[in-house]
Amino acid sequence: MTQTDAPARPVTIITGASRGIGAAIAERLAIDGHDLVITYRARRHEADAVARRCEASGSRVLLLQVDLADLDAAATVVPSSIAEFGRVTGLVNNAGVTGRIGGFLDAPIDESERLFRVNVLAPIVLTRAAIAHMAVDRGGAGGSIVNISSGAAHSGAPDTYIPYAMSKAALNALTTGASKEFGPVGVRVNTVSPGTTRTEIHAEAGRPNAPDERAPRIPMRRPGEPHEIAGAVAYLFSADASYTTGAEIRVAGGN
């Protein structure tokens, strides 16, 4: 096989991939042969470090600094990715914020508004743009989208972060609806729902020790690790998942 005959590498966008679960997904997909578009909001040095690790695995990497609460900025991600690589075959809607841990009556509405912009409206913007590019009835070659949800979408997260749980339930509905509407045109849409996972998101929510505090209530008696979430995402992008769409994989230690 000549170089020009070699199959094109998949090109996957991962939002919020400078650390935590997003970084683990990027590094795993790099190993699996993807070229990557990594978005980050503020921590460029961490995004650079993730990009270097992915490049060491053979990936080409485009870094995009985007605040996904700005929907006009979110709308530039897919076009910028296509301009760089010529195509996009995958999207991981990973970026998300929780808001402060606490009771529902104390959740500031402006915080919840930003949360919904990042967790729900930006994925709508990105998913629509990706599907418009991928759909075979629009001249695309098909593709795969994975939404990173949360077990909170099922529990409702009382006394913790109900607005966050609401936003993740909305993301699950996006998977269900889009998988049915766009399955006929070659686009698979699935969900991975982590349980409590050891990342910095808990510190940002005001409870850095939350993973270990919750461990006794998890059937496996421990929090998850980012690479364990990344493995489920990698499966959904693999040939083994070619008949899988509209699915939710819960990686939650039994919860």
Rank of each mutant, 00 (worst) to 15 (best):
V192T: 04
R87Q: 14
T15H: 03
G20N: 05
A49E: 14
S242M: 03
D240G: 09
Y235G: 09
G142D: 00
G140W: 00
T191V: 15
V146R: 01
P163V: 02
E113R: 13
P10H: 00
A153C: 00
S80D: 15
V61T: 11
R41T: 10
V192Y: 06
P194F: 09
G231S: 10
I148V: 08
T12H: 07
R221L: 08
A230H: 06
T175D: 08
A178S: 11
S179D: 14
Q65Y: 10
P123L: 03
P216R: 01
G96S: 12
V146Q: 01
G140E: 02
G143S: 06
R221H: 12
L68C: 11
I82C: 14
T191E: 12
F182R: 01
T39Q: 09
V189W: 04
S238W: 08
G253Q: 06
A247S: 07
V66G: 10
I249C: 00
V61W: 14
P158S: 05
G140I: 00
A47G: 10
A8P: 05
G22K: 06
A215Q: 07
E46H: 11
E84A: 15
C54D: 10
V88R: 06
A241Y: 01
H34Y: 07
Q3H: 02
A47D: 06
G206H: 08
L68V: 14
G103V: 06
Q3V: 02
D240E: 14
Y235C: 13
A49Q: 12
G139H: 03
S238D: 08
Y243A: 07
A141I: 04
A23R: 14
R52A: 14
D212T: 12
V77R: 15
A30Y: 12
P184K: 05
A83E: 13
G16I: 03
S155L: 10
A75V: 11
R19F: 00
Y161H: 04
M1Q: 00
E181S: 13
G16D: 07
Y161G: 00
L91Q: 11
A47K: 09
